[in-house]
Nucleic acid binder design. Structure first.
Lengths: 197, 197, 197, 197
DNA sequence: AATGAATGAGGATTCATTCAT
DNA sequence: GATGAATGAATCCTCATTCAT
């Protein structure tokens, strides 16, 4: 009742429902960028603005702040799962893909910490679920007798450790440090790159 | 308001500057607790409240949010430095102290990441300085031929790695994981405890 | 898209205008429920959703928020009018029907207040018109010499008074209080129930 | 950290703690006016603006929307209590004061409804408590054998009934209707005015 | 004629920071 | 020096309303 809109002729085009899917994708992409620049606590309005949509659209697609982050990170996890499911995949290759995501997205790193509560970014149990999916993908490829197969927790502890090593302003530097970390662990890693195909 | 004279030894302490120091200490202690509960992004007012002082006092002692965090972490670093400077200190012992702080204070973990920019907690270059001090303290005790002496970065990469492994709701769990991390690195660690004199 | 011809008596109903009427009815029914649960300020989207139609349909049928409420209340008023027009109707019976609506629909109560301005529900002059219709229906049955026939305003003031008495979480309690109110007014009321047929 | 303030020299005077009490009073007064004009659902920002204070001040003094309303209504109730406690007070006089508040403040009317839940204004159990206080004040003055002493609920039902009668754009009209309501109830009322001293 | 997405203004709430006392 | 109130910008979130399909 009180809401005033723009004069009827100065309203940006409404592209109709067709835009829905496009907008969602734009939001996820924007979120990825914004997270990279400003961290997981960046204002949601910044994400909407960068995606070129209104605030409401963001809320239509994602009920809360966590849902946005999950959508972003889910893509990363899915890529790792696909890499692990590919024909002839071996652990080193998949670790390369994982490492690529670790060096690419600071936000992804925090997922692999996966505690749950009180985090200011508000990502709760979801993160744990994503972390479990990464673990599942990796463990299937873990040969008996592998350095990380000794204790059940060792695999994900190692992943966390590499995350801890990944710091620095440029991706190149982060990659260098990640590789050093795997070397210190005595674990072989394939090429650090996104999974394609 | 007016001068009160009392026998010298029963004179009520000159509260002026003395109170200042006490307040500063209370603020740092309060910040440590608040950070542990709510993370580095907790409202400054919460810290002042818990310290039992007004907001203004906080600003008198610390110019900005980062300064508070630095003050907290500085204490951790100083303890590590003292541990390293103690008679007969060896690397394993000091790593034990370092590990204790890693498992105790989530905030401390982020310092050892020490990047600087866009972090939401706003800890800037200071963190780097603190990280350097930790490195200096450790490196003096690093024997030639030690696993972490091969490459210059390996030492602090390893420290970051252990930080990355430290997750979980209880300190006990975090300690367990930290020890697993050192084991995976093949590095010996002394008892995990604070440095006492 | 193309013409489908079927035997005359099995022709799928022309859904066009017929659906429109059905939708309108569904909206009014949904609004009644939503108002009961959440008050007159409930989001319009909630009404559309409960009616199982899109938001646009609501706007096609009702130009604004007030129109929806009016449509709901109009049904109540119409029932009272019908009760008053029925063969052999007397005042007590019709007051019983009126009272039923007062105890059934909190929204209806506000209509009988019928001021117009600043009300948050935005029901404007319409409410006044509805109130007038109720008055007209009742007054025709008001015998000379009735307690409420002394002053011209007394009739609707009394109605307002009963509305004011109608509070409480359950309809039963509201009915009890309404009856107490009529008793205090010394006015006889028939059975409290909707008008059927 | 991100908050930008005005240039240091263009900031409105901070009058210090002295203003606290004054501000609270200004807020309550502003709220009373705003409620009268726009109802209990008026934006809190409108209240702060009219009081000439920042939004934060409102939140400092009142934790939530309900608290503001309570503060306003509490003043009304207190006046009624004082009127009832005055030397030689009798029921008619106090009902006059009560009626004055009913005709003055639409918001006060809703308190006397005092249900509790789902109201959009969010005033919960508090309203009930206020209603009880009014009842207590009145009942002490209710003589045995009074029209409203027959049933325990009759007293407050009558009050609610008068509230229900109180409609209309001007106070004068509302008073006229309130008096008509008391007349229909056969209850004597003293002069309709605020309680002074 | 229906759908349901998009828009974006408005309102709630929080907190960093200043400053009179 | 300390206190704690005030300020107001920033952010979150919710709808009323429009409109492409």
């Amino acid at each position: 009742m009180t809401q005033r809109s723009l004069p009827d002729d100065r309203r940006p085009a409404n592209e109709g429902p067709r835009a829905a899917a496009r907008n969602r994708a734009a939001l996820v992409a924007a979120a990825r960028e914004v997270y990279a620049e400003s961290g997981l606590t960046a204002p949601l309005s910044a994400i909407a603005r960068r995606a070129g949509v209104g605030q409401g659209v963001l809320y239509r697609h994602f009920p809360d702040r966590a849902a946005v982050a999950i959508a972003v990170l889910e893509e990363n996890v899915r890529q790792i799962e696909r890499a692990a499911a590919a024909d002839g995949a071996d652990l080193a290759q998949v670790l390369g893909v994982l490492t690529w995501h670790q060096t690419e997205s600071a936000a992804f790193v925090s997922v692999l910490h996966a505690e749950g509560e009180g985090s200011p970014s508000g990502i709760p149990a979801y993160a744990l679920a994503l972390s479990r999916r990464v673990e599942r993908a990796l463990r299937r490829l873990l040969p008996d007798g592998h350095r990380l197969a000794a204790e059940p927790d060792d695999l994900m502890i190692a992943v966390g450790m590499v995350s801890g090593a990944v710091t620095g302003p440029t991706r190149e530097q982060r990659e260098r440090r990640a590789l050093a970390a795997w070397r210190l662990l005595g674990v072989e890693v394939g090429p650090v790159r996104p999974f394609e195909e």
